[in-house]
């Protein structure tokens, strides 16, 4: 049971990192960036190609994919979302779906639908063993807990990002500008904040984080296909809503809870696809507390 819990937290950490991108963009631009999940996929492919074809070391490849995704995030924002800043939310959402589809199909043309096997970049690090565990020849474990390096590193990276982002939004000038824009765009403009630049920065940070999430996700689930990002993207959105969209700790909490629910559901009821439980959670949360666990209640103004 404890193993499931730890695996759940690890999967949830990936969701949480993706959810951060959603929640930041939603908080500031008030739009649902449907293409966020596909940025993860691009990040996965970018690091896969540099590592496998060019033989780059993993750290450099991750850095490269972050750069690629950051640029991608900014370009998408400039080309597709910025012209629609004053349009209806329906128009923006359809555009975002269009961008998501564009990225998936472009990836399909470039890398084909054959799954690429992502290398295990943490293979050299031994797993953490708690207690006295014995691993039999067929892979089954008895006694103690074995936590793989990937699981552990995912959780640690998640905590680091969480702390870093909290400090960033509360201490730096840029972070404060972001919070100001999300509170009131008009007032922020009057205070001399460059709203367009701030929104671009938000997309940049969200997409950079998506690249990290992409690498972590692909290390844990090594089959890389053009639709790799779609489901985790949607689930991360569920996580963001679960925790309260617009709230950074909320995204973290929502992501981890969702990961744990998914893994435990998969273990307890293996015959039913675990996605059902994930989406059921979303529906229940939206019905009971639409603002999410840590979200602020927004009053509707006439």
């Amino acid at each position: 049971m404890l193993t499931y819990l730890i695996n759940g937290i690890s999967l949830g950490s990936v969701y949480a990192i993706i959810a951060l991108g959603y929640t930041m963009v939603y908080g500031i631009a008030k739009m649902l960036n449907f293409a966020h999940g596909d940025v993860i996929m691009v990040g996965g492919y970018a690091s896969f190609c540099t590592m496998t074809y060019l033989g780059w070391p993993p750290a450099l490849a991750v850095l490269f994919s972050m750069v690629v995704c950051t640029i991608l995030g900014i370009v998408v924002e400039r080309l597709a979302y910025k012209p629609l800043r004053n349009a209806t939310s329906l128009a923006v959402l359809i555009t975002a779906i269009g961008v998501s589809y564009f990225l998936q199909n472009a990836a399909l043309l470039i890398w084909t639908s054959n799954p690429k096997v992502f290398p295990d970049i943490f293979a050299s690090i031994p797993p953490l063993v708690i207690g006295h565990a014995e691993v039999a020849a067929d892979g089954t474990q008895s006694g103690g807990i074995v936590i793989s390096a990937t699981t552990l590193i995912t959780i640690l990276v998640n905590i680091a990002i969480m702390v870093g982002l909290t400090l960033f939004t509360s201490k730096t000038k840029m972070g404060k500008a972001m919070r100001a824009v999300s509170e009131d765009k008009g007032a922020a403009t009057l205070m001399g904040i460059n709203v367009d630049f701030t929104i671009s920065m938000t997309f940049a940070i969200g997409s950079g984080l998506a690249a990290i999430a992409g690498v972590l996700l692909c290390t844990a689930y090594p089959n890389l296909v053009p639709t790799t990002g779609a489901m985790p993207g949607i689930k991360a959105f569920v996580a963001a809503v679960f925790g309260g969209i617009g709230s950074i700790p909320g995204a973290m909490l929502g992501g981890i809870l969702l990961g744990v629910i998914e893994i435990i559901a998969r273990a307890l009821v293996p015959s039913v696809p675990s996605d059902i439980f994930v989406f059921a959670v979303l529906i229940i949360v939206l019905l009971v507390k639409p603002s999410g666990l840590l979200g602020k209640q927004i009053r509707e103004k006439v």
Binding site: A80, P83, L84, A87, A91, I94, T95, I97, G98, V99, S100, Y101, F102, Q104, N105, A106, L108, L109
Partner: peptide, 17 residues
């Protein structure tokens, strides 16, 4: 599908321009 995606984006951008 690639063309559909581009069409979707362009229609949205143009009708809101």
């Amino acid at each position: 599908m690639l063309v559909y995606a581009i069409v979707l984006i362009l229609v949205m951008l143009l009708t809101n321009n």
